[in-house]
Amino acid sequence: MSGRVKIVSWNINSVRFRIDIVERFLREVKPDILCLQETKVLDQDFPHQPFKSLGYKHILIHGQKMHHGVAIISRVPIVEDDRLDWQANREARHLGVRLPNGVRLENVYVPAGGDVPDREVNPKFGQKLDFLDRMTRWSEGLACPTLLVGDFNIAPLPEDVWSHKQLLDVVSHTPIEVETLARLRDAGDWVDLGRHFHPAPARLHTWWSYRAKDWAASDRGRRLDHMWATRDVAVQAVGHTVFEDCRSWLKPSDHIPIMTEFAW
């Protein structure tokens, strides 16, 4: 693997239901590696053929019926490295692989955390914080070049949401979530590639709710999807793109793809 390599992360919200837009994206953008979250399909039912027809012959999946699920689809050879149970209940939320150049690629789907930001009232919120704490302990022991991508379900900066003031008590942007994510970032000395290439206060959103009649007109977005790299990987990054137009495609996910290009 040498030259420019494009790596994409996308919460697809059901890969079978949205396979048409996945194929369109792959034809138009031609990434080398696609990391999907929320595939919502058992491994035996994953739609391999559309990817193979487009030249993506290396497919690793960690699925679950109707919920969660992650997959890594690649033009270049990949070797499965780990499936970590950061949720501590065997949900399919992580898949890690090694790339030919030795970089570890970790694809994660962090729990959304429910609607109430209180672990006593809402156990799902506590599970989310505990998930991130387990990721933090893992991050402290990293010993190789690593790229961490996926739906983190947290918009950390005030500029990562349409209204910092109005979302301070809304799950995904509460102070405790932001602080917990910051501990994870600091534990691995991670570089946030999105903000590395698009520094705040630049607008940078990756998710818009289905509840809006016109998502673009209301533009109440949040940056929930991220790509973080250890510093030895970050120095090889040459660009980061968010594909906002994909939110307007037929039967869209509520998330859009994000992509970092590397000079490898």
Rank of each mutant, 00 (worst) to 15 (best):
D225C: 03
P145L: 13
L142Q: 07
A155Y: 00
F243R: 00
M227A: 08
H164I: 00
K213R: 15
R222Y: 01
P145W: 04
L204K: 02
T206S: 15
N107V: 11
V235W: 03
G239F: 01
V191W: 03
A155K: 10
S139M: 10
D169V: 02
A112K: 08
F152D: 00
E244M: 05
P158Q: 02
R134E: 06
D130H: 07
W190R: 06
V116S: 09
G126C: 11
V242N: 01
V242F: 04
P156L: 05
D115F: 14
S209G: 00
D219C: 06
W228R: 01
T241H: 14
E120T: 12
H173R: 02
P123R: 04
A182P: 01
D245Q: 15
L224S: 04
A237H: 07
A112W: 11
A216S: 05
T174H: 14
R137L: 15
D151S: 11
L204G: 06
G221M: 14
V171Q: 06
L129T: 09
E159P: 00
V233K: 05
G150T: 05
E177Q: 14
V161M: 03
R222A: 09
H196C: 10
W208P: 10
W162D: 05
V191Q: 09
A216E: 08
A229G: 06
L142I: 15
N107Y: 11
R183D: 00
V242L: 12
A237Q: 05
D186R: 15
E159G: 00
Y109E: 10
S209D: 11
N107E: 03
W190T: 07
V233N: 12
D133E: 15
G141M: 03
A200N: 07
D130P: 01
L204P: 00
V191R: 14
T146Y: 15
K124T: 07
H164L: 01
W138L: 02
P201R: 08
V121Q: 14
W207M: 13
W215M: 04
G141A: 09
E244G: 12
A237K: 03
T241M: 08
A200T: 06
P123T: 03
T241I: 15
D115I: 15
E244W: 04
C246R: 03
E177T: 05
A237G: 11
D186P: 00
L193W: 03
G113A: 09
R231A: 15
E120H: 13
L132C: 03
P117C: 14
C144I: 07
L193M: 11
G221E: 13
A182F: 08
H196G: 00
P156V: 14
D219W: 10
Y210W: 08
